[in-house]
Design a protein around this nucleic acid. Structure first.
Lengths: 220, 220
DNA sequence: ACCTGAACACCGTTCAAGT
DNA sequence: ACCTGAACACCGTTCAAGT
């Protein structure tokens, strides 16, 4: 129980840099301040060092964000056993989307910098297992997984940079104001383009995707 | 034909700032240097003024990017008349995706800052018309349009920040290296997860989406 | 091998002051 | 009303030098 002799002033107890420590600190900043603050400089400040030091463990800001996402993917639990394969599949995807919606800007960056960590692999395994249970042919399932995860990610990513609902309102106005002469189908469709609770639309989208994946043959 | 007397040195012929001129300059920079250089500062430099001046015409960088996208949307022509509604629908969507793939980072930002300009409205009208021609119920078509455009945008956005194929390779390695014990379905699926030419996968995805939209009832 | 200070080359946005 | 210079508060990344 002797104190290590490495420093006279023990208080700051500056821990050694490790990749894990860096990612953990990044997750903490994400939770409290949002992804916009998960920068090399802010992170270095948090870890009481200079930004240059981080590059020993992390190739770039994008790679850091991908590592953070894989970490959060560990949060979304495995499928509960209740219900049909279809219901369980939708539940996994919804859980995943919900988690991503808590950090939309992370979803946005995940679209570009795909995670490849253990948690992501587990998720793919789960989706393939459920599609297999549902009798979806293997080749359709393989391509379908991409479609399903892309939808979850993109749906969350759309909510990044919110706080300025300006352009969403602009679109709503443009749709409502569409003339019957120049845009007859928009005018005829009316509110349906904008209707529906987000959860209802998400659920419908996943069902439509699953139905499409089931029935659409892969070429060759 | 008299020269306007507004300045003695005519050479620079600095044009008055207008929103149109700003957006046009932004498109030019996008084409030659990529979206990363379409910044307020770079744009101001191009227009021979200070960044602050641009804020009279443009609310923020995001709004500027949305305006640029609507401009480019004017590029993708209306559907050619040949083929079934399905083929024409796929062609419009493919054209749209191809255009976005020329500027993936713009697609990425479009996911967040939806355009609402005239070109975007025309695109929605075209999609609704084709789905209507195919006998897809109006309410399904209304929600489906979102799904189709989201897929086009997200597919292009995934290619933003390329040049560093590091993490895509990492994912490929992780999938190939998946153990039969811990990830049996990934192992059994094998190359199918990664197979297929991009065009083939895109075509399959759009067909799967259309099939799903056709057959999936909207609640209520 | 790891860590650091300092530098390079940038950002978006605001604001008081000018015209 | 429009335009501007200058400032505020930041970025990512590299590199020579230290330990």
């Amino acid at each position: 129980m002797t104190a290590s002799p490495r420093s006279r002033r023990e208080r700051p107890a500056k821990p050694a840099l490790t990749r894990e420590g860096i990612v953990a600190a990044a997750v903490a900043i994400l939770r409290t301040e949002g992804l916009r603050k998960v920068t090399m400089r802010r992170l270095a400040q948090e870890l009481d060092t200079g930004p240059a030091s981080l590059y020993v463990y992390v190739r770039s800001t994008d790679e850091l964000h991908a590592a953070v996402l894989d970490e959060l993917l560990g949060t979304v639990g495995p499928a509960s056993a209740e219900g049909s394969w279809r219901e369980r599949l939708e539940r996994v995807l919804t859980d995943c989307t919900r988690m991503l919606l808590e950090h939309p800007s992370l979803a946005r960056s995940a679209l570009t910098a795909r995670p490849s960590g253990p948690h992501y692999l587990n998720l793919i395994e789960t989706l393939l297992a459920l599609l297999d249970e549902g009798g979806v042919p293997r080749d359709r399932a393989a391509w379908g997984v991409d479609l399903l995860l892309q939808h979850a990610t993109a749906t969350a990513a759309e909510h990044a940079g919110e706080e300025s609902p300006g352009d969403w309102q602009a679109l709503e106005g443009a749709l409502r104001g569409a003339s019957e002469d120049t845009h007859p189908h928009i005018a005829a469709t009316g509110d349906a383009l904008l209707s529906g609770a987000p959860e209802a639309r998400l659920s419908w989208a996943f069902q439509a995707l699953i139905n499409g994946i089931e029935r659409t043959a892969v070429p060759d």
